[in-house]
Design a protein around this nucleic acid. Sequence first.
DNA 1: AATGAATGAGACTTCATTCAT
DNA 2: AATGAATGAAGTCTCATTCAT
Lengths: 206, 206, 206, 206
Amino acid sequence: MSTLTRRERDAQKMKDDILAAAREISNQEGFGSISIRKIAHKIEYTPSIIYHYFANKEEILEQLLQSGYLKLTTSLASSKMITDDPEERLRVMTRTYIEEALKIPEEFVIVHSDSSPNVTKHTSFLFKGASEKRKAIHMIKKCIMDMHPQEEWEEEMVELTAQSIAAATMGVTLKLIAESNLEEAQRKKIIDYFSDEMVVRMAKHE
Amino acid sequence: MSTLTRRERDAQKMKDDILAAAREISNQEGFGSISIRKIAHKIEYTPSIIYHYFANKEEILEQLLQSGYLKLTTSLASSKMITDDPEERLRVMTRTYIEEALKIPEEFVIVHSDSSPNVTKHTSFLFKGASEKRKAIHMIKKCIMDMHPQEEWEEEMVELTAQSIAAATMGVTLKLIAESNLEEAQRKKIIDYFSDEMVVRMAKHE
Amino acid sequence: MSTLTRRERDAQKMKDDILAAAREISNQEGFGSISIRKIAHKIEYTPSIIYHYFANKEEILEQLLQSGYLKLTTSLASSKMITDDPEERLRVMTRTYIEEALKIPEEFVIVHSDSSPNVTKHTSFLFKGASEKRKAIHMIKKCIMDMHPQEEWEEEMVELTAQSIAAATMGVTLKLIAESNLEEAQRKKIIDYFSDEMVVRMAKHE
Amino acid sequence: MSTLTRRERDAQKMKDDILAAAREISNQEGFGSISIRKIAHKIEYTPSIIYHYFANKEEILEQLLQSGYLKLTTSLASSKMITDDPEERLRVMTRTYIEEALKIPEEFVIVHSDSSPNVTKHTSFLFKGASEKRKAIHMIKKCIMDMHPQEEWEEEMVELTAQSIAAATMGVTLKLIAESNLEEAQRKKIIDYFSDEMVVRMAKHE
DNA sequence: AATGAATGAGACTTCATTCAT
DNA sequence: AATGAATGAAGTCTCATTCAT
């Protein structure tokens, strides 16, 4: 794994520092006011040097978004095996998703409000067949099917259900981010109720 | 109707042009990169003149947001009566909301992604007691209660359910907007399935 | 005196209003931030109309300074006959000068700091022979001479004394303006002491 | 002496150039119309680069004022000893002050016309207790008291006298600066008469 | 690898002024 | 006599980026 030279490791460290600084600014002042100068100031280097590690500002922002999205999906992935009970799995997944997203609010909003092909290419999940292309949808679908073992859902319905659950969860998350003033207790109640109750109801058919 | 002088009409036209230009920029490059200069360039005037019609940039942005929000709520309000069956009412409301929002996609995104107090003051609905302060939440709550006539839900649970439904609907809507490339048939399926099936499931407890 | 038509009287009134507004702005925000727009706003007219009464901003500022200087010298002139006692007359003149100047602080500073010929043409008084060309110096000189009836001062010395007194008084005034935070009691003491004691000492030779 | 690297020296040179340009503008058009753009134009650079050397415009103006004030007070301090005769000391001090001030006319005017707290914080001397806080006032007071050895002045009166003398001297100086056209002979007479005669009269009580 | 100097574009805003009505 | 629309210049400041060292 560590076939990197010291130089390469140093460079990677620097890149990470830059991205970390950018992320910090994004969280404090908003994604839109990330600036090379502010990053430079935060890492205590000159603006110029940043161009040694990134071609331009855009590249930084892109990687920021990507890493944000990545963190989300990986954290989601890691939460899957916890339990065999599909209902419980669905609960945990939902909660994990919301909580992880709340850690990178700005990136989350950007990623999910942006409708440029460049972004939706990675983030879209409403298209037909998404349960095969999108890991998250796939995982939800699996939960749903495991919850109704003997019955047979129509394939399409299960996918639509999974997609609805994903979109709904995203909606709750976005709203929680937008309403950042919400009292902590209420915030907790919303998260609990949505992931423990609502999601399960959505996943079931009578 | 026309108690305005020509002057006033011209002035109103100019204001509208400015707002239209701003809206267009917002759609093309994002809300955050609206600038007085760009607006001026689009309407083929000097930046200065804009200050003849608006006190400052903020006023423009505010009016932009307001007009977006206004269109939505009025369209929602007008859809409320229709039928006595609460389940059917919930279905229609959801569908109406989604369809109306899709008619003003840009404004919708702006209004629901913005977390500045100025905006959330009007758009927040996750707070405790929202079912009394927010007409939409109230209407959803009423549907839920009418669907379970003899039983008594705990008040708080009903509100949380209504809030979840609202947030979920918003999430689906936003996702539909972001995925503007979605095939028409699939788009229709998502809307149908979500408003006809999912929302009803969310509103029911076993 | 009133050979003015109504139109002319109205016009004069407007001019006065404009100058009054300008003066007010000068006192509140400083001479340097007088602007046509602010004046217009204050008199509740459009900026444009101001150009009906004044050729441009400069003309307004000029008249403002002139009127300020005028008020000062006329107020000074009017204070001369109060008493026959030359010592008392000098005291009153000094005090009057300071107090009147403090009513138009900005204009006073401008007028007396400006070294452009256009201004010094009116305000200079250190030149040889000033006691004949400048009313104020003349008046001070008269006081001094009346205070030493039988003796004969050398003409030149009296003028130099008068000039020194005038410059000194101006210095005290300027300093009082610059130190606008001075406590009221202390301000009063300075004025009292300077006009009652110091000026008289300056005017006397042993 | 030269512990500065070439870089640092260059930077200092640039700073000095900027300040010099600002000073020049101040002399030509007045302190109030110093602008970043004008400075940039004078030094033949872009406005932006100025922010490389100064945080903002205010910092430039501040340093301008400070350097002016500094030059004066240091020159005054160095003139204090000379003789034991208090009357003679007062004469020399006054003359020195005037002559030094005339060497830096622009800065002198700026410093003594500005009434912003930032400046008066250093330059005010009319406040009660100034003879303890301000070296110049203290030195004048000492002269006065030494001139009346056995008698006892009321403390307060001595301070007021010293303050009056300082303000008067400042007034004469300002006037000499404003009347820059004054003939050399007359200028000399004014300075001589004021510092040799008037100041001494002011310092004495009968 | 890193710096500091420099630019040019652009941000918002205020202003004096002109002109048609 | 008065207005409102419009301009163009100027104001301060921030930014991304390049380049010589």
